[in-house]
Design a binder for these strands. Structure first.
Lengths: 169, 169
DNA sequence: TTGGAAAGTCAACAAGGCTGACATAAAATC
DNA sequence: GATTTTATGTCAGCCTTGTTGACTTTCCAA
């Protein structure tokens, strides 16, 4: 609590670590996250889906063929909770669950064309806001934005986040 | 969608606006927000409260004496939803709702000592994570972090966010 | 004095978390 | 080959926190 009100020997200001600065950061996270989810939420309403469906669709699109267990780890929810969501997506023909080749206990998840279409609609909207914010803030700010967010994540999740590469399984 | 893959005439790279960069930003927001709420959530559990109580307590602490209507705007929920939360906080003696001096229809909200104690416990935990992230990323990154988050907010909320000054009503 | 704003309340409902218990198939191990 | 572990699915019930709609009370201001 008494941290950040002095200068280091090296002369680098620590004023950015005052409680007031931290509180502004906390509020910024809260308000920005609300805006961040608002656009997809509006779209989801018209499709009779919720935020949980969006998350599942996002990660299945991101890493086509990932297993239920992997998705569970990414989302950090119980299998019962995920299953409810996943079942409706499969029933509605947005997601296909194929039995694993090597390990037949596993289910590999894929978006159907219909699922991919909804994913595009959702991520277009979300990216539009993110792009506007990025453009307004500029590349240096964006780099800092990403650095702070990464530092805030739980370490295990951060590893998954950093490992996630382009599209393919 | 085809944006960001070229360079401007001025030579400034727009590679930070590619869909892949935007997607990483989206995922970073999601994962970081989850970590951001995890610590307070654990504390709230032991007190039989939820995230909604935390938010109310946060803003009442931040702007002591604010009205129910103002709190409604900050939180972006319905009065019925807020009322349920606020009622338990008043009943449990964490919040005091005083009738407005000028306008007696209004209720000005204040934290009691007990309420302030819980607020401190919650925000200490939340600040600890934020401080660690700030320290790891450094002041320049923090400035960028705040810039991008502000640019992402809805304009009306951003005005409130920027207007909110230190403590007093 | 009356219209409308601020606040409170009741009821009903939905999404999406949770726990616990149990079933099945397949893989892994003894 | 028998047993245990793992991955998945499913049923039932609970909680928090959001929603809508209807209605009341209080009280400022035109």
């Amino acid at each position: 609590m008494e941290v950040g009100r002095t200068e280091t020997g090296g002369g680098e200001s620590l004023l950015f670590l005052t409680d007031e600065q931290l509180r502004k950061g906390i509020e910024a996270m809260y308000f920005a996250y609300r805006a961040f989810t608002a656009d997809p939420d509006r779209i989801l309403e018209t499709h009779e889906y919720g935020r949980a469906h969006h998350r599942a669709i996002h990660f299945i699109n991101r890493q086509s063929g990932l297993t239920v267990n992997m998705l569970l780890i990414m989302l950090g929810v119980t299998k019962q909770s995920l299953n409810r969501v996943l079942r409706t997506l499969v029933e509605d023909g947005l997601v296909e669950a194929r039995i694993g080749r090597r390990d037949k206990r596993e289910r590999n998840l894929y978006l159907t064309e219909k699922g991919a279409a909804l994913e595009r609609e959702l991520s277009d909207a979300q990216r539009a806001r993110m792009r506007a914010a990025y453009r307004a803030a500029g590349p240096a700010a964006v780099a800092g934005f990403r650095q702070v967010l990464e530092a805030m994540m739980d370490p295990e999740i951060r590893r998954h986040y950093q490992a996630m590469k382009d599209g393919a399984a």
